[in-house]
């Protein structure tokens, strides 16, 4: 997995790239959580994520819940077909902020 973070005002956009599994979830959290803790609105661009498993879904849930707790939000952008399928399998399409 690789990533790029861009900032615009209070919005931080994290472009994730590659496959998100148990092996990279800690790294993903290290990137995303500090932005949420800084009360940024975090946009996760998932256009270039070709694979996500239950560990990746856990990162999305944890990020969403942390943001809600801190009064900000995480919005999932340009979700790839394969990631959307896993989100729907987990019945999270009404829970997470999908754009």
């Amino acid at each position: 997995m690789s990533y790029k973070v861009t900032e615009e005002g209070n919005i931080s956009t994290v472009h994730l790239n590659g496959e998100i599994d148990m092996d990279v979830t800690e790294k993903a959290k290290e990137i995303i959580m500090p932005l949420i803790e800084a009360k940024k609105e975090v946009h996760l661009n998932l256009k270039d994520v070709q694979y996500m498993d239950s560990s990746g879904i856990s990162v999305l849930i944890e990020s969403h819940q942390k943001a809600t707790e801190l009064g900000t939000k995480v919005i999932l952008k340009e979700i790839s077909k394969s990631v959307l399928k896993v989100i729907m399998m987990a019945k999270l399409e009404q829970i997470l902020n999908l754009d």
Binding site: S54, E62, A90
Partner: peptide, 9 residues
């Protein structure tokens, strides 16, 4: 909540 989805999948 995070976790517990793998077996469900």
């Amino acid at each position: 909540k995070p976790g517990g989805l793998g077996t469900y999948f």
